[in-house]
Design a protein around this nucleic acid. Structure first.
Lengths: 230, 230
DNA sequence: CGTACCCTTGATGTTCCTCAATGGAAGTGG
DNA sequence: CCACTTCCATTGAGGAACATCAAGGGTACG
């Protein structure tokens, strides 16, 4: 599996907010126990129920975390970008099983650190734990917000909110680059691809947005858009 | 505000999983910086936007955390019982503002510990941080599960799942004591009181449950109930 | 005992999902 | 580089689940 090019491992450690406060020597130490793994697009990193006690750090690419409901429907929980980590349950429990699925949605490279190694670093550098806690607290707030939105806001408002949180300003134009397919976006927003498509069409007819490519949407007037959703 | 009956403070500390691994002397130390506060039913502990840097521990009673969506609808996020804590955002940030509302849904007494005191204990007893992280990780999993359910399962399945997670076996009968009003339950499950009422009626007609009082529901056949929802 | 709130039930309306067909983009192999 | 294939996006028609509005009945609490 892993190749032992230490240089890339340190890059991986340096990238992550939970480790990047350490000095070079300390990061090298941690990099020693990190194993790099590559995945191609659509490859699964793990599935629900897999036993696993490692921390995953995204080095390159993007990973989609999703779960399957009892009725078999997919729910995208979040998208991980370089520097994000997952598998934090492994930090605390001796026997831990994944409660979700993880899929590479592009060519992806990650670093894995086993719990038994991580435990040593947590004891030695307590700041790491603080930073992990900080990250998870943020994710909890996001997750709670997502729950509130899915159960109290109509689909259009959720789409607009999602767009407004992903805007990139660029030479006088406001663009959004969708980080995933509309199909996956639908499961993230708790709706269907058809409904997403219809809402986008409606927003376009009303002159609020313009679809350029599948992944790129131009927003003509963000304020007007936000006003519509309230 | 607080009365300084140290005995009750220690009870409060002893109750809480994040502190109860400490010895008596250590718990007494922490109890010194805990302030007890009492609330009557329906009283607000804090509101969205309040600045606050304390950790809250529930000593007695129950507290409901909820948020208001932009359209003004309530979403119950969770119910806290004795031994639960909240305000963990305060642990990490110097300036922290509440992102939710907290309301006592019965006569409630809590202990508050200020961040500046807590920080000392976190440094001295790293195990506390581990336990807080453990608790928040569990809550994150619950929150993600709630999102999945709200957006992929029909209301009836959500109700049944909620009931099955709150069963109490008691002299050959299976009961559920609802921890909140149906009105609040509705906002927790992402629906309306009317729909909850109708679904309960339907389950009762089908001979699966029986409503005894507002808060107490008997379940005749849990397995049959779970089968229905799948 | 009275009042207020919550729960329940009915009638109606709307949002959004499902099913189905077509069009288009992206990726694959020649 | 082009043809082929496959998956994704779009649009339409129909239907189901659930919200809303409104009124009556029960329950808890002062």
């Amino acid at each position: 599996m892993a190749n032992h090019n230490h240089h890339s491992h340190v890059d991986c450690i340096r990238l992550v907010p939970i480790f990047n406060h350490l000095n070079d020597e300390q990061m090298h130490l941690i990099a020693q126990s990190a194993h790099e793994v590559q995945y191609v697009k659509n490859e699964l990193l793990f599935r629900f129920g897999d036993k696993d006690d490692t921390l995953y750090i995204i080095n390159n690419g993007r990973v989609r975390i999703y779960s399957l409901s009892e009725s078999g429907r997919e729910q995208t929980i979040r998208i991980l970008h370089p520097g994000d980590f997952m598998g934090e349950v492994a930090i605390l429990q001796t026997e831990s099983y994944h409660s979700n699925y993880a899929e590479a949605i592009s060519e992806t490279s990650i670093c894995r650190i086993h719990k038994k190694n991580l435990d040593q670093y947590l004891d030695r550098y307590p700041e790491i734990m603080r930073r992990i806690l900080s990250d998870i607290t943020k994710r909890l707030q996001l997750s709670e917000k997502q729950t509130v939105q899915v159960s109290t806001e109509p689909v259009e408002a959720r789409i607009i909110d999602f767009l407004s949180e992903n805007v990139e300003d660029e030479k006088n134009h406001t663009y959004v680059t969708l980080p995933m397919s509309k199909k996956d976006l639908a499961t993230y927003l708790g709706t269907t691809p058809e409904t997403i498509s219809r809402k986008f069409s409606s927003l376009e007819e009303r002159g609020l947005i313009k679809r350029h490519t599948q992944k790129c949407v131009e927003i003509f007037d963000l304020d007007a858009l936000l006003f519509v959703s309230s």
